[in-house]
Design a protein around this nucleic acid. Structure first.
Lengths: 121, 121
DNA sequence: CAGGATCCAGCCTGATACTG
DNA sequence: CAGTATCAGGCTGGATCCTG
């Protein structure tokens, strides 16, 4: 038998084939801005719209809205709006989102540690 | 002091600001196809072009070429071509690429395990 | 403050053809 | 087998303006 030395058998069943649910979620999580939003919320627990715009440096309002709505629909981010004037909306991670962040943050830390070497080669 | 309960301080220095090297690497690693290519190589050690096309289900030849060249330039993937007819080219992860895969595979495993719950909500 | 609506540029994809 | 070249089309993402 060949290639059985790895622990993580990612492509075992029908995972990560085109159109598969796993692929859909992968595209959501690996989208351009989702990692930054999730990491920001993991870092600070609760953030408002304007704070998220600063953390995810360079994001447009459109993409912040789109990313937040997507993450909320996926049950990864919780949105709480207080009915006041001016509006006050708070975003935070759900427990599922925190689980995800537990895997995402180490990856981003590694990128942070190795970015210069990667681009320097 | 606020927000000091997390271990991973992702946004500590100037990391992940727009145009920063960390952001560039993040975009490479989190691109649409790079995760699938890296996971495929982590799974099977050595793969040829046609095998990679099957693993990264749905990828076009153009994007496979682009993704492989990017990963090779970043020092994450090694390309070895034997000068024979017909051509025989092998792709594998560098040690740096294997390090990355070590963080990427758990994330993808988690996605595989939770995809249905995420999309079902 | 927290978005929604709109328009436009660029990237991605798909198809096809060609090369060593 | 392992790609490169080209072109058309659709979709994503960005910039700007507008609203409760």
């Amino acid at each position: 038998m060949k290639g059985s030395k790895q622990i993580h058998r990612i492509f075992a069943d029908q995972a990560f084939t085109a159109g598969c649910p796993t692929r859909t979620v992968l595209d959501h999580v690996m989208s351009k801005w989702a990692p930054l939003v999730i990491a920001s919320l993991a870092d600070t627990d609760v953030l408002r719209w304007s704070e998220l715009r600063q953390r995810a440096d360079g994001i447009s309002e459109k993409m912040l809205a789109q990313t937040l709505r997507q993450l909320e629909a996926d049950g990864l981010v919780r949105r709480e709006a207080r009915q006041v004037v001016p509006p006050h909306v708070e975003y935070s991670l759900t427990s599922l989102g925190q689980e995800l962040a537990g895997h995402l943050l180490p990856l981003m830390s590694w990128i942070n540690a190795n970015a210069d070497e990667i681009l320097g080669s």
